[in-house]
């Protein structure tokens, strides 16, 4: 979303100040403290998840093993973590695909003003800020009213989309408003059909924005809790499993789960960034051969 344009810059012949102002050092301190507070606790639990069987919830660390990871996936009392994982990833992928497609199409609409566009816009803001549990209860009651039993692939999917879509559309909105319309007009002048214009001109140029929407969609869904609580039906997603674990389990299994979910998140980011890099590389190669 950050597009910084380098302006032709007139350099002043003499620098006004020598060295850095004192505020630099103060703010650098603030920044470092923030980053430490951000990562410190997380690294503590990653570390503590590798204790052996004597391990507890606090330091000092007792031994070193993979015991609690094994415990996590084999013990009954830790719940259906494996199933939760599978459902969460499937649901998140489904949400990602729908979010990308729908917010891209909606983004096309928001490039121009149209009658009633404010209604859609504020509906989206409303959906974004509505308290998750309230929305979940509403969806649950709605399904009950129509006699449909809630399931993670129907009610939970819809409840999550009502939260990921506004995010997605707002990002597309920001990305598309910086899209140069003349490229589109050029394509049209050269005889491209509307479909070709979208598929061969707009989509490739907006790829980074689309990947950003995908990343947001995936993470927001994978981590979504409040909206899913009343709508997932009898089978739990991963955050719901984690929630019940925080209430019942008091062993480093909980921390092991934290380590595993973090690894999964990083694999997903890696795949996304790798895809962008690959697309960029192919694009430059294609540009070079032409």
């Amino acid at each position: 979303m950050t597009t910084t344009v380098e302006h032709p810059h007139r350099r002043r012949p003499t620098r006004r100040r020598e060295g850095r102002p004192w505020t630099f050092y103060v703010l650098a301190g603030v920044f470092i403290a923030y980053v430490l507070a951000l990562y410190g606790p997380m690294f503590c639990i990653y570390l503590l998840s590798f204790q052996d069987i004597r391990g507890g919830l606090v330091f000092p660390m007792k031994g070193f093993s993979l015991h609690w990871f094994n415990d996590l996936f084999t013990q009954v009392r830790t719940g259906d973590v494996k199933g939760g994982f599978q459902r969460s990833i499937q649901l998140a992928l489904l949400v990602t695909v729908i979010t990308v497609v729908v917010s891209f199409i909606a983004g096309l609409a928001f490039r121009r003003r149209f009658r009633g566009d404010s209604i859609v816009f504020y509906l989206m803001i409303g959906s974004l800020v509505a308290p998750g549990l309230v929305l979940g209860i509403g969806v649950g009651l709605l399904f009950q009213y129509f006699g449909v039993s809630p399931h993670w692939t129907t009610s939970a999917l819809g409840a999550q989309l009502s939260w990921t879509l506004p995010f997605g559309v707002l990002i597309m909105f920001a990305v598309m408003s910086r899209f140069d319309r003349s490229w589109e007009e050029a394509a049209r002048d050269l005889g491209a059909t509307p479909w070709q214009t979208i598929w061969l001109v707009i989509v490739p140029i907006l790829t980074p924005g689309i990947v950003a929407v995908a990343l947001f969609g995936f993470t927001l869904s994978y981590d979504e809790f409040a909206r899913t609580l009343q709508t997932s039906g009898s089978l739990n997603t991963l955050p719901l499993e984690i929630w019940s674990m925080t209430l019942n389990v008091t062993s480093p299994s909980l921390y092991a789960l934290g380590t595993v979910t973090t690894i999964v998140s990083f694999v997903i980011i890696g795949i996304c960034l790798g895809t962008i890099a690959l697309i960029q590389k192919r694009r430059t190669q294609r540009a070079a051969t032409h």
């Binding site: 951000l38 990562y39 410190g40 606790p41 997380m42 503590c44 639990i45 503590l48 919830l57 606090v58 330091f59 990343l215 993470t219 994978y222 981590d223 809790f225 991963l238 955050p239 984690i242 929630w243 925080t246 909980l254 789960l257 934290g258 979910t261 973090t262 998140s265 990083f266 997903i268 980011i269």
Partner: peptide, 16 residues
């Protein structure tokens, strides 16, 4: 850290 679980980030304060 935004891409990791919020719940996990919250309970990570417990050992501290």
């Amino acid at each position: 850290p935004f891409w990791t679980s919020n719940i996990i980030r919250m309970i990570s304060w417990i050992p501290l």
